[in-house]
């Protein structure tokens, strides 16, 4: 017999409450992309190896692919769609455009969410430390220099909430 109990959960995503019924084996990433149609959060590996699915849960950057949605019942989630303040881009978003910190753009949402989480953690001081603490986000196009430059500019400008 295949168990197929669904669970009623509430996710607060980008300040909106969503009440959904889900099966326990559905990842947070798939809920965001397939149920809520928030496809800004990307699936690059589905196994915690690339960082493209990075979102902020209760302010902390985590990998949504290795998180079961059912485990985050009641959590506040910020995805790339919720990073800007309305029409005003987040400083990190602006800096990414200015520094050409992406090419294909697929790793970009994860890089940006990760950068915001990293700045909030406040542990990286030097460029080398920023590089180390951003290393959980792969970029195959090789936009690494632009990404780190963008983050360093915002970090040094101190305008990152």
């Amino acid at each position: 017999m295949e168990p197929k109990e669904t669970h009623a959960i509430t996710l607060n995503v980008n300040d909106t409450n969503y009440q959904i019924q889900i099966l326990p084996w559905v990842s947070l990433l798939d809920v965001l992309r397939e149920e809520l149609h928030l496809t800004g959060t990307k699936k690059g590996c589905d196994h915690g190896q690339c960082g493209a699915c990075t979102v902020l849960v209760d302010g902390k950057r985590i990998l949504s692919c290795l998180t079961l949605a059912v485990m985050k019942d009641g959590s506040a989630i910020t995805t790339i769609e919720g990073v800007a303040d309305g029409e005003n881009l987040h400083p990190i978003q602006k800096a990414f455009i200015e520094h050409d910190a992406f090419q294909c753009g697929y790793c970009t949402p994860g890089q940006i969410c990760s950068a915001i989480g990293m700045l909030k953690e406040g542990k990286a001081q030097t460029r080398e430390e920023v590089q180390e603490l951003m290393s959980g986000n792969l970029c195959r196009c090789g936009a690494n220099r632009g990404i780190i430059n963008a983050i360093m500019e915002v970090k040094e400008g101190g305008c990152h909430e």
């Binding site: 928030l38 995805t79 881009l89 978003q93 455009i97 753009g105």
Partner: peptide
């Protein structure tokens, strides 16, 4: 700067 930049940094692409 890339014209589609805004779409890519906001997850709208």
């Amino acid at each position: 700067s890339r014209l589609e930049g805004r779409l890519k940094v906001t997850g709208s692409a």
